[in-house]
């Protein structure tokens, strides 16, 4: 029985981890370019709703995904134009985006609340899926789980190995130096914000199209905030974001398991778990690392070319 519990728990963990990972990768792209996007929760909500609406009307979950990404990117574009072009405060603007996303999806999404939509089912990979233990954990997930894993590799390569990534990191570390080197700082930041927004939108769509097959108001339920902590925990490294997402996904996956088992644990205590974890992952690396934070040096700093220093 305990073995069943563990296997069941591990098999559902990737599904819970995927939205965390997707959004974390998006935020990481933003932040490595020097833009802190606190609007993640709002962008995820917009992605979740548009994905569900498109899927509802077309009957195709696959059609919901690109539209959700586009919607996330559009919201991010608004955010990006504000902070990159008009140099508004990144924190305040991010908070406004959350309120905006919440309000917008509440109004537009109202007629679709609790409508069953087409979603992504777990794949059946034949013999692979039938492997005892490992099969359900590794080979009975929906396609977006595998896509997220592939994206983690792609983002790692893009940021840390590619030529474009080098310039993007330069923009996030020292925009004045990047500017002198001929990098278009505003363009790179705007592109990073839009790309990050698309991934946040995808993360939201995962919740409505792969987790619950339904749109409900406020359904992102604070995950967009947890992701911000997760990026810090990951030290802005995609590989560690995968680990972080699995930890948070695992914690979240535990909640319904524990309830199903009928343990006599107050549900509020269990529900607190992700947030206690958030605190823990923020504190522990600070203790382990000592003084130096691996945060991009120019994070939160808007850049304006000076005519005279």
């Amino acid at each position: 029985m305990a073995a069943d519990f563990v296997q069941n728990w591990l098999a559902t963990t990737p599904g819970f981890a995927t939205p965390f990972l997707l959004a974390a990768l998006g935020l990481m792209i933003n932040e490595r370019a020097g833009v802190l996007n606190l609007g993640c929760e709002g962008m995820m909500l917009v992605g979740a709703m548009t994905g569900a609406v498109v899927s509802f009307h077309t009957g195709l979950a696959g059609a919901g995904v690109p539209v959700a990404m586009l919607a996330g990117a559009l919201v991010a574009l608004v955010f990006g134009i504000a902070v990159v072009v008009f140099r508004t405060d990144q924190v305040l603007t991010g908070l406004i985006i959350v309120a905006f996303g919440d309000g917008l999806t509440g109004v537009v999404g109202r007629p679709y609340m609790f409508e069953k939509v087409a979603g992504f089912r777990d794949l059946d990979l034949g013999p692979l899926s039938d492997i005892p233990w490992l099969g359900p954990i590794l080979f009975q997930q929906d396609i977006l789980v595998y896509a997220a894993a592939a994206l983690a590799v792609a983002v790692w390569w893009g940021l840390d190995r590619s030529d474009v990534g080098l310039r993007l990191r330069a923009v996030g570390e020292d925009p004045a130096t990047a500017d002198i080197a001929g990098v278009n700082v505003q363009l790179f930041r705007l592109a990073a914000v839009v790309l990050g927004g698309a991934l946040c939108g995808l993360a939201g769509a995962y919740l409505s199209l792969a987790s619950s097959f339904v749109w409900t108001e406020h359904m992102v339920a604070g995950r967009g905030w947890i992701v911000i902590a997760l990026v810090i925990f990951s030290g802005w490294r995609p590989g560690r974001a995968v680990i972080g997402a699995l930890i948070f996904g695992g914690a979240e996956a535990l909640i319904p398991r524990v309830q199903a088992m009928g343990f006599d644990v107050p549900i509020y205590l269990v529900g607190m778990l992700p947030y206690v974890l958030t605190l823990a992952v923020l504190i522990v690396p600070t203790i382990l690392r000592g003084e130096r934070s691996p945060a991009p040096s120019a994070l939160l700093l808007n850049y304006l070319r000076q005519d005279r220093r």
Partner: peptide, 25 residues
């Protein structure tokens, strides 16, 4: 005008990518 977190080679690629025609540190 150097990015402190970058290696010497990364800084050179950033600044001289066209002059040297290099893309990788």
């Amino acid at each position: 005008k150097l990015v402190q977190r970058f290696t010497v080679a990364e800084n050179i690629v950033l600044a001289c990518r066209d002059a040297l025609g290099v893309r990788r540190p």
